[in-house]
Write a protein that binds this DNA or RNA. Structure first.
Length: 826
DNA sequence: AGCACGCCGACT
DNA sequence: GTCGGCGTGCTC
């Protein structure tokens, strides 16, 4: 039987535009299949795990294909629907398949090749032929068998070690090994069983008698017998830990093993806490009248629309509607994907969902350990023996899981911009990608929010999506009362207490008296955004980036929020030497400090990037606030994100103007969303909440729309502006960022690229312009924006842009110019 | 993304 | 004179 030689086209985990072809050794012919990983050598020394994307028998003509080294998986770990999604994402978001794969795989599935140094045992020359540094490495290998490149760098305290290693190899002192490091390690638990001898009843009796004089051992044996249910029904496996925990000590255990009464064995177990499928009580949910009608409308819309937008005011009880819909899908045996903008929100939601679907929900996001994420992947795939999850709750990366039978995708807080990934590529929008994913599965998508994005609401208005609106808050809760404060007037009247207006002071005082809670929102972290010399106006800037350094009072530093560069707080002006340095503007840190001055007894908690950097810090802050351990929560936009508290009576927006003044066409949309969302946190079951908005422009139309809680007016006015200036949703945008460390070269290069693009696309090409921050980490930036009519085919334009970039990069001076493409930028 | 090849500046 | 900087090109 002559079988044709097989070849594979594989996706490598790199930003390479093409797939690469490898040859399959005969003995692997039966083991290879699409969606399995293989180990391949790529380049002179590197070994990667690559994914089989195509199997064929066309031998490459222009080169000799390398052989694959091995097949990693017993069964495919990527399903056909995922290949479809990845291909679409790579083409829509203008990136490579390798980049999509890298985003899709939890890092536990990505094997990394590592160069390992080992001593050459045949080395017989004098160590005196080695240089001092070489000897240092040689000596280190005497103590430690293996060294990684990173360890060598550490030992020598220098970055360039390759030539030194090369020399060591040439002198015959060391060898190197290229090894793939398997990251995923299954968790094992030690179990105990009786030996074959002890397992026989008559022997066991004798053993019991013999152990009379060894109470510790007897105690362990009894504990085992009880847990194994030997004399009562089904025999169960017993973990060693169970016995140790019950008897409170280890003593005697080893003796039992030694006497060959106990035998221990290892078993792989799931890290996922689950008891498997348990009964779920969906009927426990009772919808209010308005919820019920919204639920029915959603189902009605799904009859002929694939995507439905559920526009429900804050606290209108959207979650209950989701649960009902999830329930229906589960009954049909379908999978459900529930996407949330923020990892931290999963805790609140999971508590509400798990009541209904305990053991069937998998939570998936980047804060989970690699090992756990691999197990969830396998569980969705239905391999690995653990629980099979049919509901996945997660942040944007959850859409990459290997679903094969998806029935419904829910995107909660659809308007949130954290659904868009910016760095690294793929620069994808999880909402839009999930809608495509759903279409692959012929599944439905539900978008839920209190403040729909312009894109989604206009899609709903023009009939592309179904629209269901819910204007009533759950349980007769009233919409919060919104109060505007003209900060300009208050300052004139010298009424301000720090950054607090008299009205806000009064409401906070009342709230504290009644043991009610307060949320203060200021969209800026740190103490103040910059320091300024009172005499000459000098402002300390970052040395690597084109931004001012933000003052962080409590760590006594000024820091760059873009690269992390920091300096000790300056006391003297570097320009004129004057010592009258003042803090300008204000951030959350300053608000918290002022608060503790005016309300020394209030328990204050701050929630922003600085205080939530530590793992679980977010959960802790939210938890403390929920439990009432904290009276005031001061935070950045983090506090606006869909959290539900039930004892908040006052919400304060300290400076609406800083949001409105942001130079971006979406700043009004975002300001409305933020104010409306943070305001929605106010209100309790039987009491109307109050929202104080402090602003210099109380007549601004966005402020007035928030005041009137009029989303429709906001939408209509915003649409008028978008149409006038041809912004989305009336056009599509593609952002191009051009980076280089040499400013002049960048200027020239970007002009040439724009000229070439304009030749093809005309006035659709805008720029190049320096962005507001024109230098980050010592790289200068220029931005170009492509604005396309909706009627034009984006695919054609994307191909055209790619061609032009290839042409541009073929120019020898521009090879080092980095170009980032961002489709549908935010 | 690595990694090797190759061409110019500050050292033995 | 060389060591080593990083700019450039290629990897099936």
């Amino acid at each position: 039987v002559t079988e044709k030689t097989k070849f594979l086209n594989v996706i490598l985990p790199l930003a390479l535009p093409n797939l690469y072809t490898y040859r399959v050794p005969r003995e692997f012919n039966d083991t290879i299949s699409l969606g399995k990983r293989v180990v391949v050598q790529f380049g002179r020394s590197k070994v990667y795990s690559a994914l089989i994307a195509e199997i064929h028998s066309r031998a490459p003509e222009n080169y000799e294909a390398k052989y694959i080294l091995s097949v990693l998986d017993d069964a495919p770990i990527v399903v056909s629907q995922q290949f479809k999604l990845w291909t679409w994402m790579a083409s829509y978001y203008m990136c490579t398949q390798g980049e999509v794969m890298n985003a899709a795989f939890p890092s536990g599935l990505k094997l990394t090749s590592e160069t390992i140094l080992q001593k050459n045992l045949d080395f017989d020359a004098e160590t005196s032929i080695l240089s001092d540094k070489e000897y240092l490495i040689y000596e280190a290998l005497e103590i430690q068998e293996m060294l990684s490149i990173a360890e060598v760098i550490k030992i020598l305290n220098q970055n360039t070690v390759l030539s030194l290693i090369k020399s060591l190899i040439e002198k015959g002192a060391i060898r190197i090994n290229e090894g793939l490091v398997m990251k995923y390690k299954p968790k094992t638990v030690t179990f105990v069983k009786l030996s074959a001898f002890a397992d026989e009843e008559e022997h066991l009796k004798i053993i019991f008698d013999k152990l009379e004089k060894a109470p510790k051992q007897l105690e362990k044996l009894i504990s085992f017998i009880n847990h194994s249910k030997r004399y009562s029904g089904n025999i169960e496996e017993v973990a060693k830990k169970t016995i140790i925990l019950e008897t409170g000590s280890l003593s005697g255990f080893a003796e039992l093993v030694k006497k060959e009464i106990f035998e221990v064995y290892e078993k792989e177990v799931s890290r996922l806490s689950s008891s498997g499928i348990t009964n779920w009580k969906s009927n426990a949910i009772v919808l209010s009248e308005s919820q019920e009608s919204a639920f029915k409308k959603v189902k009605g819309e799904f009859e002929n629309k694939d995507v439905v937008l559920l526009h429900g005011v804050t606290s209108s009880g959207k979650t209950e509607i989701y649960i009902k819909l999830i329930d229906e899908q589960l009954k049909k045996g379908k999978q459900v994907l529930y996407l949330l903008p923020e990892i931290a929100l999963t805790t609140q939601i999971i508590n509400r969902l798990s009541v209904h679907y305990e053991g069937r929900i998998g939570v998936y996001h980047s804060k989970y350990s690699d090992n756990e994420r691999v197990e969830i992947w396998n569980s969705v795939l239905g391999i690995g023996g653990g629980a099979t999850y049919d509901i996945i709750l997660g942040a944007r990366s959850a859409l990459f899981l290997p679903f094969n039978n998806l029935g419904l995708v829910i995107i909660d807080e659809e308007h949130e911009n954290t659904f868009k990934q910016y760095d690294p590529a793929p620069r994808y929008h999880a909402r839009d990608s999930a809608i495509y994913l759903a279409s692959i599965h012929r599944a439905k998508t539900l978008l839920g929010t209190a403040t729909p994005s312009m894109e989604s609401y206009s899609n709903a208005k023009n009939g592309k999506y179904g629209l269901v609106e819910l204007f009533e808050r759950f349980g007769n809760m009233q919409m919060p009362e919104i109060l505007l404060v003209n900060v300009k007037d208050e300052i004139k009247k010298k009424n301000m207490n720090g950054h607090f207006s008299p009205l806000l002071m009064e409401l906070m005082t009342k709230a504290f008296d009644k043991k009610e809670q307060v949320i203060l929102f200021q969209n800026r972290r740190g103490f103040s955004p910059f320091l300024e010399c009172h005499l000459c106006g000098w402002i300390p800037n970052c040395v690597h980036c084109d931004v001012t350094l933000t003052y962080h009072k409590n760590i006594g530093k000024i820091r760059c929020h873009y690269c992390g560069y920091s300096l000790d707080t300056v006391v003297c002006c570097s320009a004129c030497g004057d010592n009258n340095i003042q803090a300008k503007g204000f951030g959350t840190e300053q608000i918290a400090e002022e608060l503790s001055h005016y309300f020394p007894n209030a328990k204050i908690s701050r929630m922003d990037l600085d205080t939530t950097r530590v793992k679980n810090a977010y959960q802790r802050i939210i938890g403390d606030f929920e439990k009432g351990k904290v009276d005031v929560l001061v935070g950045t936009q983090m506090v606006t994100k869909g959290l539900d508290f039930d004892n908040v009576s006052v919400v304060g927006v300290l400076s609406a103007d800083s949001m409105l003044g942001y130079p971006d066409f979406r700043s009004y949309e975002r300001s409305y969303q933020l104010m409306s969302q943070v305001g929605g946190r106010a209100g309790r079951k039987h009491k109307r909440g109050k929202v104080v908005i402090q602003t210099y422009q109380p007549d601004h139309h966005v402020i007035l729309n928030v005041f009137a809680n009029d989303y429709n007016a906001q939408f209509t006015q915003e649409m008028k502006q978008r149409k006038q200036f041809d912004y989305p949703p009336f056009s599509r945008l593609i952002g191009i960022t051009i980076k280089h460390k040499d400013k002049q070269l960048l200027d020239g290069a970007s002009e040439i690229l724009v000229k070439a693009l304009k030749l093809k696309l005309g006035k659709r090409v805008l720029g190049p312009e320096y962005p507001a921050i024109s230098r980050i980490r010592n790289l200068y930036l220029k931005k170009v924006l492509i604005k396309l009519e909706i009627s034009i085919s984006p695919t054609k334009v994307k191909n055209l842009i790619k061609e032009e970039i290839i042409k541009f990069h073929s120019e020898k001076d521009f090879k080092s110019v980095r170009i980032l493409l961002d489709v549908d930028p935010l």
